[in-house]
């Protein structure tokens, strides 16, 4: 592990940590809201109302419960992973090997 002196930090050391963590939590809350609305909202609570609409043979509520929710879950995880890559880089906490390549 490379060890260098703590250089020229003007802001208190805890500051970036709180900011990073807050951004992480905000992203999480947004994504989990979508998770809840699509699965429990569209797939369960409002399934009867949505079933009145039919698209290519699928009643819409039924489609969310058996197909749409799963696709949404997948997209949510991908968005989280990609956004966290950016956030890690922004705050300099991404994991790199000796040559600066991502691990």
């Amino acid at each position: 592990m490379t060890r260098t002196e703590q250089e020229g930090h003007t802001s208190p050391p805890g500051d970036w940590r709180r900011e990073y963590w807050r951004k992480n939590l905000r992203l999480m809350v947004i994504l989990l809201s979508v998770w809840f609305i699509v699965s429990f909202g569209c797939g369960i609570l409002f399934v009867d109302q949505l079933n009145k609409i039919t698209i290519v043979g699928f009643p819409l509520g039924f489609w969310f419960a058996q197909q749409g929710a799963i696709y949404t879950f997948l997209v949510l995880i991908l968005i989280y992973a990609l956004r966290m890559d950016r956030l890690d880089d922004e705050y300099g906490v991404s994991e790199r090997d000796g040559d600066g390549e991502r691990l």
Partner: peptide, 9 residues
């Protein structure tokens, strides 16, 4: 809570 062991400034 923070992925890297060392922080890059």
């Amino acid at each position: 809570r923070y992925p890297a062991v060392t922080r890059r400034t």
